[in-house]
Write a protein that binds this DNA or RNA. Structure first.
Lengths: 135, 135
DNA sequence: ATGGTAATGATAATGATTATCGTTCCATCC
DNA sequence: GGATGGAACGATAATCATTATCATTACCAT
C-alpha cells in the first residue's frame, strides 16, 4: 500500500492540468493554463483551474512560486531549487545551491525560527538580455 | 551640494508618509499607513498614499518587500537585510548574512545573470509561536 | 437505483493596486 | 502681484488575479 500525502481524486480536469504541467518545463499561471487547455480541446472552467492547482499542490504533485503579481506552477519531480527572473524578457532560470540552503537554516535556527518554507528570487537581466543591451 | 538619487518634491503628504515610516520599525502596507495617518489627523487620499510610496521608494527614501498579497514598506536607513515571516502571528523578523549574499551573486555570475535585486523570505514559526504550540 | 459527498462551471464578489480626470498647489516668468 | 504650466492631489472608476457562491453534475458506496 502506498501512502500518498493526502488522498485526492484525480478527475479528468485535474489530470489534464497535471499532464500539461508535467510535460513541460514552463512556469504556468492559472490563465495560461486555462488558455492552453482550451486550445488543446480540454476546456476547463477557470475556477476549476484555480481549485485544481491548489489541490494538486497540497497533494505535492506540483509546486508553485509566488511572484509579485501572480502565482506560477511547475513540475514537482525536480530537486529543490530557486529562481532568477529576467526583468526584461520575463524568462525564469532555476538554480540550486546547497550551501545557501543550509546557511539559511542555520540563521533561522539561531533566531529560534522554525522554517517551513522559503523563497529566494533574484531579479535582473539574463545573459541574452544583457548582451542585447550592450549593442 | 548634496546629490539626491532623483529630485522629488517633498510635499506635506509625502513628508507625512515618510515620517510615519521613519519613526517606526514596522513594515507598513498602504492601507495601514492611510488609516494611521488619518488617525493622527493627517488624512490623505489612498491614491496619494500609493503614489507617494512609489515615489519615495524610487527616490531611495524607503524600501519595500513584496509579499504574496501586498507590498510592505519600511525605513531605508538600515543595512541590507532579508526577512523571516511568521505564518502564525504575521510578525516579520529581519536578518542579514553576508555569505549568503555573496554566494547568490556568484551563482548568478556563473549563469551570466546580472542581478539588480533579490528577495529572500523564509516562512515558518517564530520563537514565540513555536512555544505557544508545544503546550 | 439511490443517497450523499465532492467536483465542476458560470458568475458574482473581493481586495490590492492603478488609471482617470477635474481641481489645487507652486514655482517662475512678466 | 497676477498669469501660466506642470506636478500633485483626491474621489472614484477600472483592472486584474483570485476566491466565494450556488446550482448542477459526477462518482462512490450502500
Amino acid at each position: 500500500m502506498i501512502i500518498v500525502p493526502s488522498m485526492i481524486r484525480l478527475t479528468a480536469q485535474r489530470q489534464a492540468i497535471l499532464d500539461m504541467i508535467n510535460t513541460s518545463e514552463r512556469h504556468w499561471d492559472a490563465d495560461e493554463l486555462a488558455r492552453s487547455l482550451s486550445d488543446s480541446g480540454q476546456s476547463i472552467g477557470i475556477a476549476t483551474v484555480y481549485r485544481g492547482l491548489a489541490t494538486l499542490e497540497e497533494a505535492g504533485l506540483i509546486e508553485s512560486i509566488q511572484l509579485a503579481d501572480k502565482k506560477r506552477y511547475e513540475r514537482a519531480d525536480k530537486a529543490h531549487h530557486d529562481h532568477m527572473i529576467c526583468t526584461a524578457c520575463g524568462s525564469i532560470e532555476e538554480f540550486a545551491h546547497a550551501t545557501i540552503e543550509s546557511l539559511q537554516l542555520s540563521v533561522a535556527a539561531e533566531k529560534g525560527f522554525a522554517v517551513s518554507g522559503h523563497q529566494l528570487v533574484m531579479f535582473g537581466l539574463c545573459r541574452k538580455c544583457t548582451q542585447g543591451e550592450q549593442k
